[in-house]
């Protein structure tokens, strides 16, 4: 970096209204998450072997979602991130749900026929 470039860099020039500290997650925490994920995998396999009717996919998806949330919060550090990142993640899942629900609105009601 040249001297000329350096003179105009100034931390006061950063507009950063909601700044989050750079949090370091400890290996102990990572290990606990790791254990929880393996446990979840075992649970989901066991749960699939039991006939629970309509509850089977619900449980499978519930466990998968829990695991995903754990990964997002700890492995991906979202728990310690700014509101911006949290909102971004939420925004992604919201749009995904819009895609699913509004498309399903067609498929679910198609069989109802004409009114």
């Amino acid at each position: 970096m040249t001297a000329h470039e350096q003179h105009y860099h100034d931390p006061a020039n950063v507009t950063n209204p909601e700044h989050s500290e750079h949090h370091i997650v400890s290996p102990v925490q990572y290990s606990m998450v790791f254990g929880a994920l393996l446990l979840g995998t075992l649970l989901t396999v066991l749960a699939a072997d039991v006939d629970l009717g309509a509850m089977n996919p619900v449980i499978a998806l519930g466990i998968a979602s829990t695991k995903a949330v754990i990964v997002i919060l700890f492995f991906m550090h979202v728990k310690y991130q700014s509101h911006l990142i949290k909102m971004t993640v939420a925004c992604g899942f919201f749009t995904f749900l819009v895609l699913i629900t509004l498309t399903l609105s067609d498929y679910v009601s198609r069989a109802w026929g004409l009114w």
């Binding site: 509004l102 609105s105 067609d106 498929y107 679910v108 009601s109 198609r110 109802w112 004409l114 009114w115």
Partner: peptide, 10 residues
């Protein structure tokens, strides 16, 4: 050929 009900909402 989408559902009439869904079309109404959209």
């Amino acid at each position: 050929g989408v559902s009439n009900y869904s079309a109404l909402v959209f």
